[in-house]
């Protein structure tokens, strides 16, 4: 049990954005969400599974997500998470600012390579 802190490979806010983006198209419960992110990222991102849950609670608190009782694929009781309208709005805003940031970073990196 070496690290209990947030995964330092991600910058602040990245996890929240990925959660919102993942849930945007389909509501999911926790385990499915983790699996989804892992699969989509081809395991490139080292996310500690558990670190998702504090982030989910943070998004719930901000009103960007909603949760409801449901059952998992195996029929166990769990909670299903869904993005709210303000969640989508927030996501759009964040995505565009991320986009600008990535553009900037990419250009700087491209310049130093040439």
């Amino acid at each position: 049990m070496a690290r209990t802190s947030d995964n330092r490979d991600l910058f602040p806010g990245a996890l929240e954005i990925m959660i919102l983006q993942s849930l945007r198209h389909k509501q999911m419960h926790g385990y499915a969400l983790v699996k989804h992110i892992k699969q989509v990222s081809d395991d490139l991102l080292q996310i500690e599974e558990g670190s998702l849950y504090p982030a989910l609670q943070r998004l719930l608190r901000e009103g960007l997500l909603e949760s409801e009782e449901g059952v998992s694929a195996k029929g166990r009781p769990t909670r299903i998470y869904r993005v709210t309208d303000s969640g989508i709005h927030h996501l759009e805003k964040e995505l565009s600012s991320f986009g600008k940031m990535f553009d900037g970073i990419t250009r700087v990196l491209a310049f130093s390579q040439s």
Binding site: H29, G30, Y31, V34, E49, G50, Y53, L56, S72, A73, K74, R76, P77, T78, R79
Partner: peptide, 9 residues
């Protein structure tokens, strides 16, 4: 509930 379900799954 969420976490317990995660681990069980």
């Amino acid at each position: 509930v969420s976490i317990e379900e995660h681990i069980q799954e």
